[in-house]
């Protein structure tokens, strides 16, 4: 059962927070991997998603990728890419695998944000003489922002969860404490690490959710939060 004494002792021991495999460093590594992967995926996915929504072509790509990606186990994708790309490029292959995981939700968020804008809004923008570039920059992107941020939210949850498995392919991240703790039967370490992971994930989800609500409230009546 819940061993508060052991957990408290582990968490209050400064040795467990400092050094290469200390919690601070592992948390920083965890967040770095997550942000790097999401940024790389977003640079590719968001423009493509906005373009598909704007021109109304290639929807099958978004829908197909969305339903197919749910069936693909992220763990297998991570392991396969690291093994195929080689152990010496471990960091690069892990980030690429994580970007691949972040890609479908980002694409879907950008696409659905643009495609759900009512036709009359676009028509009135065009009727006022806006060029395509102006239409995208001043009308479609602001109106789609809540949905685009929603895509980031789902991508964050998926990527941050998958980074937990990174120690299995030889990288760090807070999952290290779970894997090492399970192997050494050091259960306070396992519990403390998973608590830190839960805090990181849930806080991130709430913070992005806040931005999503702000973006939505600024421009349109409130809509229910999107959930994968």
């Amino acid at each position: 059962m819940l061993d508060f004494g052991g957990l408290g002792a582990w968490l209050s021991n400064p040795e467990n927070w400092a050094g290469r495999y200390g919690l601070w460093n592992l948390v920083a590594e965890h967040l770095c991997l997550t942000f790097l992967a999401i940024v790389i995926a977003a640079i590719v996915a968001v423009p493509i998603g906005v373009a598909i929504g704007h021109f109304g072509r290639g929807e099958f790509l978004v829908v197909g990728l969305g339903s197919f990606s749910r069936a693909i186990p992220t763990m297998g994708l991570l392991f396969a890419l690291v093994l195929v790309m080689g152990i010496q490029f471990r960091e690069l292959s892990v980030v690429l695998a994580l970007s691949a995981i972040a890609f479908p939700p980002l694409l879907a968020g950008a696409y659905s944000g643009v495609t759900t804008i009512p036709a009359w809004i676009r028509d009135s923008a065009t009727a006022q003489g806006m060029t395509t570039g102006q239409l995208v920059r001043h009308v479609e992107l602001p109106l789609a922002s809540a949905s685009i941020i929603g895509g980031f939210r789902i991508a964050y949850i998926q990527v941050v969860s998958t980074v937990v498995l990174a120690p299995l392919v030889g990288l760090g991240g807070v999952g290290f404490g779970i894997i090492q703790g399970l192997a050494l039967r050091n259960f306070p370490q396992v519990t403390a690490s998973s608590l830190v992971i839960i805090v990181i994930t849930v806080t991130g989800d709430r913070v992005i959710g806040l931005f999503q609500r702000l973006a939505g409230a600024r421009l349109s009546p409130p809509t229910p939060l999107e959930k994968s």
Binding site: L2, D3, V164, I178, F187, T191, S194, I198, D205, K227
Partner: peptide, 17 residues
């Protein structure tokens, strides 16, 4: 929504506690 965001490995090892 918060529970759904918890990574599965973290949940697997939190339940025993």
């Amino acid at each position: 929504g918060a529970i759904y965001a918890i990574p599965s490995l973290a949940l697997f090892v939190t339940l025993p506690v």
